[in-house]
Computed example of a mutant assay.
Amino acid sequence: MFSQLAFPVFEQCIKDYHVHDNIDQPVSNPYPKEQIEHLLYLKNWIDTVQWHFEDLIRDPEIDPVEALKLKRRIDAYNQQRTDMVEFIDSYFLQKYADVTPKPSAKINSESPAWAIDRFSILALKIYHMREEATRVDATPEHRAACQTKLDILLEQKIDLSSAIDDLLNDIASGDKYMKVYKQMKMYNDEALNPVLYQGKK
């Protein structure tokens, strides 16, 4: 099952990041480039750094100049996240290229890689909620509330794992087919964002 391959990769990546817990540390991907695990690790690394960007920018004491710099980095990482999702979908398109969809085949509401994107972020939620549920300097009430949330996240992990595996099995059997749309984000494109192209006049 693909979910059983992917989630441990995400957990390893999150653990590796928190050895130094530094948004500027370079990624050290332990998987060969020809393996899907390499893409999954890199995807989760982007998500993990982004997670900590989002923490930092919410600091009420952050310097406005530094906040703007951080916002630019967040935008860049958002684009990397989208690019990586599309790259992972390309892997699945190639993997199932020889499958002929059945006449009754249907399209899914999201591609496999966008479901995996949610799976990667769920791994981060579980990691950080578990930290809060076991934080020794927190109140018992805080830990209990976080444990309740962690239990829900772990249930969601089971459900999302099943949904991802079912989707891939359906694609492999021809019961569903893949159709990938590029995200076509407009706000980073100088030709499409009015603030950018009007500023060039």
Rank of each mutant, 00 (worst) to 15 (best):
M1I: 04
F2C: 01
V9M: 04
Q12Y: 02
C13M: 06
K15A: 09
D16K: 01
D16T: 02
Y17K: 04
Y17R: 06
V19I: 13
N22V: 09
Q25K: 11
S28D: 05
Y31D: 00
P32F: 12
K33Q: 11
E34L: 06
I36R: 10
L40V: 15
L40N: 14
L42R: 14
K43D: 15
T48D: 01
V49L: 03
V49K: 05
Q50S: 03
W51V: 01
F53N: 14
F53W: 14
D55P: 01
D55V: 13
L56F: 13
P60H: 07
I62G: 04
P64N: 06
V65A: 08
V65I: 07
A67M: 05
K71D: 13
K71A: 14
R73A: 08
D75N: 15
Q79L: 13
Q79C: 09
T82Y: 01
M84D: 06
S90F: 00
Y91Q: 03
K95D: 01
Y96N: 07
Y96A: 04
D98N: 12
D98I: 04
D98Y: 08
T100F: 04
K102A: 09
S104M: 03
S104P: 01
A105I: 09
S109R: 07
A113Y: 00
A115C: 06
I116Y: 03
S120I: 00
L122N: 03
A123D: 05
L124D: 02
I126T: 07
Y127V: 01
R130L: 08
R135L: 08
V136C: 00
V136F: 05
V136I: 10
A138Y: 12
A138T: 02
T139C: 03
E141S: 05
E141W: 02
R143K: 11
A145G: 10
C146G: 06
Q147D: 06
T148H: 08
K149V: 05
L154I: 11
I158V: 09
I158C: 01
D159R: 12
L160D: 08
L160A: 12
S161L: 15
S161A: 15
S161K: 15
D165P: 03
D166C: 15
N169K: 12
I171V: 10
D175H: 13
D175K: 14
M178V: 10
K179T: 04
V180M: 07
V180K: 05
Y181P: 04
Q183F: 12
Y187E: 11
N188C: 12
N188D: 13
E190D: 14
E190G: 11
A191E: 14
L196V: 04
Q198R: 12
Q198P: 03
K200S: 07
